Amino acid sequence: MKIEPQHVVSLTYDLYVDQDGTETLTESATQEQPLTFLFGAGQMLPKFEENLSSLSTGDTYEFRLAAGDAYGEYDEEAVANLPKEMFQGTELPEIGSILPLQDNNGNRFQAQVVSIAEDSVIVDLNHPMAGQELHFKGSILNVRPATPEELSHGHAHGPDGHHAH
């Protein structure tokens, strides 16, 4: 079956990212634990879906996404100082750890701790893969029409359309 909007796609992928001139495998979805998503629902990177849009069950694929089409270019300005008072009553986070944050509008995002100064914790708000070209290889395991419940919820309920219990 061909991939179309309002269809559920299950696929495998290997994601390679260039690190110091060497392509490194950074993420995978296997046949046992495929990536399953509702196509066209805005959950995936738009260019990722665009590259899959002509495929059908059983097809293999390989494509690259430029940083601008993936998680964006690295933004030097997206570094923030959080006052140490924010961490009163808890231990200060370690450098390299990921903090779940929320802005005044209730939007959730993650920040990586890059350093700790005298009175603040400095965090990088860029996506960990910002500024990187993504190289995907994989195969389409299954394509099926979404169930009415999946369409009303706006996401897939697993490869067969049911929530795992």
Rank of each mutant, 00 (worst) to 15 (best):
residue 1 M to W: 03
residue 3 I to G: 01
residue 4 E to V: 12
residue 7 H to R: 15
residue 8 V to Y: 02
residue 9 V to K: 01
residue 17 V to L: 13
residue 25 L to G: 00
residue 26 T to Y: 08
residue 27 E to W: 06
residue 27 E to G: 05
residue 29 A to N: 01
residue 29 A to R: 01
residue 30 T to E: 07
residue 31 Q to N: 08
residue 34 P to V: 00
residue 35 L to Y: 01
residue 36 T to G: 01
residue 37 F to H: 06
residue 38 L to M: 01
residue 41 A to Y: 08
residue 42 G to H: 09
residue 44 M to H: 07
residue 45 L to W: 06
residue 45 L to K: 11
residue 48 F to M: 02
residue 49 E to F: 07
residue 51 N to P: 00
residue 51 N to T: 00
residue 51 N to A: 14
residue 54 S to D: 03
residue 57 T to I: 06
residue 59 D to T: 11
residue 62 E to G: 14
residue 63 F to A: 08
residue 63 F to C: 09
residue 65 L to R: 02
residue 66 A to C: 04
residue 67 A to F: 05
residue 70 A to W: 02
residue 71 Y to M: 05
residue 72 G to I: 02
residue 74 Y to P: 09
residue 79 V to C: 06
residue 79 V to D: 03
residue 85 E to W: 04
residue 87 F to S: 09
residue 87 F to Y: 11
residue 90 T to R: 14
residue 95 I to Q: 00
residue 96 G to N: 12
residue 97 S to V: 12
residue 98 I to L: 01
residue 98 I to M: 02
residue 100 P to S: 15
residue 101 L to W: 05
residue 102 Q to S: 12
residue 105 N to H: 02
residue 106 G to P: 03
residue 108 R to Y: 11
residue 108 R to I: 12
residue 111 A to R: 00
residue 112 Q to S: 13
residue 112 Q to W: 03
residue 112 Q to Y: 03
residue 112 Q to T: 15
residue 115 S to G: 13
residue 117 A to P: 03
residue 120 S to F: 13
residue 121 V to C: 04
residue 122 I to M: 11
residue 122 I to F: 03
residue 125 L to I: 10
residue 125 L to E: 14
residue 127 H to R: 11
residue 129 M to D: 15
residue 130 A to Q: 08
residue 131 G to H: 06
residue 131 G to M: 04
residue 132 Q to W: 05
residue 132 Q to R: 15
residue 132 Q to H: 10
residue 136 F to D: 02
residue 139 S to L: 07
residue 140 I to Y: 00
residue 143 V to C: 13
residue 146 A to C: 11
residue 149 E to I: 13
residue 151 L to D: 07
residue 153 H to A: 15
residue 154 G to I: 07
residue 155 H to M: 15
residue 156 A to Y: 03
residue 157 H to C: 11
residue 157 H to A: 13
residue 157 H to K: 14
residue 160 D to E: 14
residue 160 D to Q: 13
residue 163 H to I: 10
residue 165 H to W: 06
residue 165 H to S: 07
